[in-house]
Simulated assay, not measured.
Amino acid sequence: MASRATLLVVFSSRLLVLLLLTGESWAADIESVRIAPDKKEFVLFPSGSRYTPWGHNYASVDLLKRLAQNDARVEREFAEMKAAGATVARIHPEMPRILTAPGKADPQALDQLKRLLQLAENSGIHLQITGLACYKIEDRQAWYDGMDEQDRWKTQAFFWETIAQTCAESPAVFAYDLVNEPVAFGKRAEGWYTGRMGGVEFCQRLSLDPGNRTGDDVFREWTKRMVAAIRKHDQTHLITMGMLPFPGVYTAAAEELDFVSPHLYPKSEKVDDEIKLLQKFDWGKPIVIGETFPLSCGADDERAFLLKSRGYAHGWIGHWPDKSPAELAELKRAGRATIQDAIWLSWVDLFQEIGPQMIGETSK
């Protein structure tokens, strides 16, 4: 295994080449993504070449704000991700920035989304666009959270119509990710959101008034409605949903999806347990692990999980750090890296190290 210093030199050299090519001359000949004829993998259209989603969740809670305030930073970070070997970035454009009122979208936010599409097309990185993100509690809109279920679903469908209409013509879109880690229903007193981490909540409930409906009923009805909203404007790009590690919850939703996207974080010395869990998401459709990271294990266990998962998954998306890989490596060299910095650097190192194996032919 190469040392971190060696990896940094390689990374810096690749990044320099990319940065020297930025601008119009950097535009990549990016192709659209389709489901392969075997219904298990992905291919590029029209070439038919095999495509493997291998990348990162990027700027999960402040994407459009970051782009508006520092476009150059976002462009640089796309170059860094590409230099590290990424083929996909999962992005989370915040719903409170996209919609300003019921049935009304912010033109400036849509322009920023178009800018992201341009960056993706230029870099050769496809985008998995996650919708309905209301993660930051302080940014939520009272008019939206005060709606009843049907008006809320109508607004969510309008969001997806707006996104699909904006993105339909871009070959850089890998997939629309309907919502991050949804729960079918909860009690009204619990509110629409759950999964709190500090000042953000990453999960949403689809209904607070399920009546006689089961969880399957709610998921099936809601997913059909969101898919129909997208298909009004975009008949080709793929559709998925970010799933918690509870496969039984999402079987009805999966009926309407092009591929499934569980979020799996292996635990120390329990890699085989996570592989068994992954297998339960095999519903005859491609699987892309939409989130993974050495959060509850070390880099060795994460490596083992990723390599063992290749027989079942056909795409993997980790998390990109806010600090650049070069900055993390310098902090490590200077002895000033925090434990968190060290974890992030271990992930970037691992991502670069095994990237060729992950993007190569899959095998059990």
Results as ranks from 00 to 15, higher is better:
Ala2Val: 10
Thr6Val: 10
Leu7Thr: 05
Leu8Lys: 12
Phe11Asn: 01
Leu16Met: 14
Leu18Val: 07
Leu18Ser: 03
Leu21Glu: 12
Thr22His: 04
Ser25Asn: 02
Ile30Glu: 07
Ile30Tyr: 11
Ser32Met: 04
Ile35Tyr: 00
Ile35Trp: 01
Pro37Glu: 00
Glu41Tyr: 00
Gly55Thr: 09
Ser60Tyr: 03
Leu67Ala: 04
Arg76Pro: 04
Ala83Pro: 07
Glu94Ile: 07
Ala101Asp: 10
Gly103Ala: 05
Leu110Lys: 09
Leu113Ala: 03
Arg115Pro: 08
Leu119Val: 13
Gln128Val: 15
Gly131Leu: 13
Asp139Tyr: 14
Gly146Met: 07
Glu161Asp: 06
Gln165Tyr: 05
Ser170His: 12
Ala172Trp: 13
Ala172Ser: 15
Glu181Asn: 08
Val183Gly: 10
Glu190Trp: 09
Arg196Glu: 11
Arg196Ala: 15
Gly199Tyr: 02
Gly215Lys: 13
Glu221Thr: 15
Glu221Ala: 15
Trp222Arg: 10
Val227Lys: 08
Val227Leu: 06
Arg231His: 14
Leu238Asn: 02
Ile239Tyr: 04
Gly248Pro: 12
Val249Ala: 14
Thr251Lys: 15
Glu255Tyr: 07
Leu257Ser: 04
Asp258Ile: 04
Phe259Tyr: 10
Val260Asp: 00
Ser268Gly: 05
Lys276Glu: 15
Gly284Phe: 08
Pro286Cys: 04
Cys297Asp: 09
Ala299Thr: 15
Asp301Gly: 09
Arg303Asn: 06
Leu307Ile: 15
Lys308Ala: 15
Gly311Tyr: 03
Trp316His: 11
Pro321Glu: 01
Pro325Val: 10
Lys332His: 13
Lys332Gln: 14
Ala334Gly: 07
Ile339Gln: 07
Gln340Tyr: 14
Gln340Asn: 08
Ala342Trp: 03
Trp347Ser: 01
Leu350Thr: 11
Gly355His: 13
Gly355Ile: 10
Pro356Leu: 13
Met358Asn: 01
Glu361Asp: 12
Ser363Val: 13
